[in-house]
Design a protein around this nucleic acid. Structure first.
Lengths: 126, 126
DNA sequence: CCGGATCCTTGCCGATACTG
DNA sequence: CAGTATCGGCAAGGATCCGG
């Protein structure tokens, strides 16, 4: 990953910290479930149970785990209504939305290059 | 992931196949190592050993495994020079380049929202 | 309804050794 | 140098239960 240009910091420590953090964020975010959750949320606000239905095949555990991660990184917001039974809603924050825009592009890419990929797979002999 | 609008196919089977394939491609591609390799390759042509140095922390095994996957999906091209010792070079295909462009955006995003994320982490108390 | 905790299985991934 | 094969540890992830 490219290093951000930090103007004039004569101290390399900041750069190193930034890079290692950047890699960490990248690793957090660049995984199947996280991206699918972000796609599913889109501009909507969804309850936990709705998300679970929306994201095909995700387990209860993976969903909470990834939601905590998104929340921790400030990409999603968690709103709890202290009713009974409880009601918890999730929304993407503005940075989350920005990320979603790029994930959308990956989806577009998938559809655009569908044919190419299918063809490549057929003509691929290990 | 959103389903591509296939005009007028009265047969649902195609849609299902397309969606399942799309998810499969997405799962292949949406993983840390694959994306980092794509980033590392960029517009360059790199040898196996060069890639190994370029992609920080990747193991021999993961590198070959992911390169085979990229090749299978037609995202990277593998060129073997039958010299001794052997020389193998990898390049992104045009679809691979297109995908890389979107990955670049994710990197940009990471750097742009760096501050927000750090702040969110500090103020996050489980 | 939500989410944490626990147990248990699966499969990822690194290490190593061996071929062309 | 590049790639395959095998093995084993360990962490990811599923199933389940309980508690708020």
């Amino acid at each position: 990953m490219a290093t951000k240009q930090l103007k004039d910091s004569s101290d390399e420590t900041d750069l190193r910290r930034a890079d290692s953090l950047a890699r960490e964020i990248f690793s957090d975010v660049a995984n199947k479930w996280a991206l699918l959750i972000i796609e599913a949320l889109g501009e909507r606000t969804l309850r936990f149970s709705e998300l679970r239905e929306e994201v095909e095949g995700i387990s209860h555990k993976m969903l909470t785990q990834n939601l905590r991660m998104l929340e921790r990184n400030g990409l999603a917001e968690r709103k709890v209504y202290p009713t009974v039974p409880p009601r918890v809603e999730y929304t993407l924050t503005q940075p989350g939305q920005a990320l979603r825009a790029t994930v959308d592009l990956i989806c577009d890419w998938t559809h655009q290059h569908f044919g190419h990929i299918e063809a490549a797979r057929r003509s691929f002999h290990p």
